[in-house]
Design a protein around this nucleic acid. Structure first.
Lengths: 337, 337
DNA sequence: CTGAAAGCGCTTACAG
DNA sequence: CTGAAAGCGCTTACAG
């Protein structure tokens, strides 16, 4: 490991190129005019010294860091990784770097946001699952733009890019109604969100239109085992419905595993099931689950675009973008009648 | 959205508190002495103005950004999220923030590293899966510390914190030998790594000691479907072994699904199987897979600690830390004889 | 087209 | 214990 020697500065480059430091800056920023020849000399010197401009010094003048803070849920749910990758790509595409905000934000973690603000991120993108945070409040206080992506908090009034959950709920209901569904149930996890409410409302509205009453929403848990035991309890008490929409694929797996292996029902003959998120394993032999696939790339791009608008002060309005999710049909829906 | 007004600076604080700007700096850094009373006045002013020190200005003096760059594989493999979360926590714990380096590094993406270097990260932690990168070369050139975590490249000579893959391979072999395994096979994906070589070598060495010959290593694919079709081909050509170690749990699922559902073998009666990574679903009804669980939290802590040592110039040596992985026994191993 | 100089918001000797 | 001043590495009017 070679000793970290002092990094070359624009002054070093200027000296080597025989120009002023201001000229080096101009060549690099592309602002102002420079003779082609001068430009070349500077580029050569940069090459020779392996010079990299110091982004912090630049930031000091611009008061813009080109940094976006990202706040992710802490759960190890696979699509969060996909989301993160797309977000980082989208940031990069727009010339921003992505700073990860550690952990979920909650009462104890308010330290995080304070800490974060030192870095003067230009804005924050959050998909966090804990709305008991004063994130929105603090950011608003500081005039720091925030955009939610994929997962939307119940009481937030900040912009978001999310899937069209209401539409997905409606579509799920209507597909199962078409297949002679009579007894509907929505199963979700334990963390409340607008995302979830929307999906349930779409589902319930469609069912109500057709059948005259709203279906029930069963609150379980996002964890597979915890979810299974709550479903087991419910099935013992009230039997099974014949058409189920689940808030995540994992919940759908839990449901299927309980009703098929513990109670002997058949899917889809006795019960049809639709999941949400289309995890990789939904296509595997064990489940063949019909599920909604979110357009994560587009969600990421929209979120970053929304944030950029706010950063550039182009808007004061709250934008809610709903991107439709696609129903991937496999083998957990009956034949249409 | 309130208009982003100019952030207050230490000068504003100084003015309000009626002290010099240098004093504000001292109070905040805790360096040098300050009268309790002065300290209080400064703190009050900070509170009142909602002041947050500008990390970039600080960095300019320190030439240390307290930033660590993180380079993750782009695959949506769930444990990478867990790794990321632990890494970010570990960074935070040591006073660093985590900057995500976008995408995998490869020839086209060299842009990334150049781009990254502007931010003067103090060091880089990588779990990337593409070793065809000049990351190590570039960083060495610049004297920028790099540490690998979890996944180790074949030809890199930089420090790492990884699981004891050799030990895991050995243990897997010995457990299956104890259970009367006769015909051994190792199945891996398509990306070469030292991590993988070590695991195979541990496995092969133990088998060779006992049985007098090294087992075969079957190179497939990390993707479930692709992996299945390669396994199918192999089974058709050469039949099945009776003891299998897989490089990931997903590979183990693919193997089990092919041999059980397409060829009618029983697990573990005909074939015993061990996976690696202990994904959540390995405990579910479909697989009940015996698998190695990596100590991701400890890997993360060790990696950050290694990096910190290098950043502080406390060492020029290359350290390789191996953390043992724990075998979680479920139902894919026969009874011991 | 280019240079000299001021300034971004901090830290840190140096005096006192 | 505290203030005045120089400096970190850039950008950007201002002259020329």
């Amino acid at each position: 490991m070679s000793k970290k020697s002092k990094n070359p500065t624009s002054n070093d480059v200027a000296r080597l190129a025989g120009v002023s430091q201001a000229t080096v800056s101009r060549v690099l920023s592309g602002k102002g005019y420079t003779k082609e020849e001068t430009k070349q000399k500077v580029m050569d010197a940069i090459e020779q010294l392996n010079y990299r401009p110091n982004a912090y010094a630049r930031t000091l003048n611009n008061s813009r860091a080109n940094l976006i803070g990202i706040l992710l849920p802490s759960a190890n749910y696979p699509i969060y990784l996909e989301l993160l990758n797309h977000l980082v790509q989208a940031c990069k595409h727009k010339g921003y770097s992505a700073l990860l905000i550690p952990g979920e934000l909650n009462e104890e973690e308010n330290y995080s946001i304070t800490n974060l603000l030192q870095y003067k991120v230009d804005g924050i993108i959050t998909a966090s699952a804990h709305h008991k945070t004063n994130l929105y409040y603090e950011c608003n206080l500081l005039g720091l733009p925030v955009v939610q992506v994929m997962r939307v908090d119940v009481d937030s009034d900040c912009s978001y890019a999310a899937s069209d959950n209401f539409g997905a709920g409606e579509l799920a209901a209507s597909e199962m109604l078409k297949r002679n569904g009579q007894d509907f149930l929505y199963i979700t996890g334990h963390l409340p969100s607008k995302t979830n409410d929307d999906r349930f409302n779409g589902f319930a509205t469609e069912v109500e239109n057709e059948l005259g009453h709203r279906p029930e929403s069963l609150v379980t848990h996002f964890d597979y085992e915890a979810c299974k035991s709550l479903i087991r309890k419910r099935v013992k008490q009230k039997g099974v419905p014949d058409s189920v929409l689940c808030a995540t694929d994992v919940i759908a797996y839990a449901f299927m595993d309980v009703v098929r292996f513990e109670f002997g029902y058949r899917v889809p003959e006795d019960i049809q099931v639709i999941g949400y998120d289309d995890l990789e394993q939904s296509s595997w032999s064990g489940y063949k689950l019909t599920s909604f696939r979110q357009n994560i790339k587009r969600l990421s791009n929209e979120a970053v675009a929304l944030l950029e608008q706010q950063i550039n002060g182009q808007t004061d309005r709250v934008f809610n973008i709903n991107v439709s999710a696609k129903l991937i049909e496999r083998e957990t829906l009956r034949e249409a009648t």
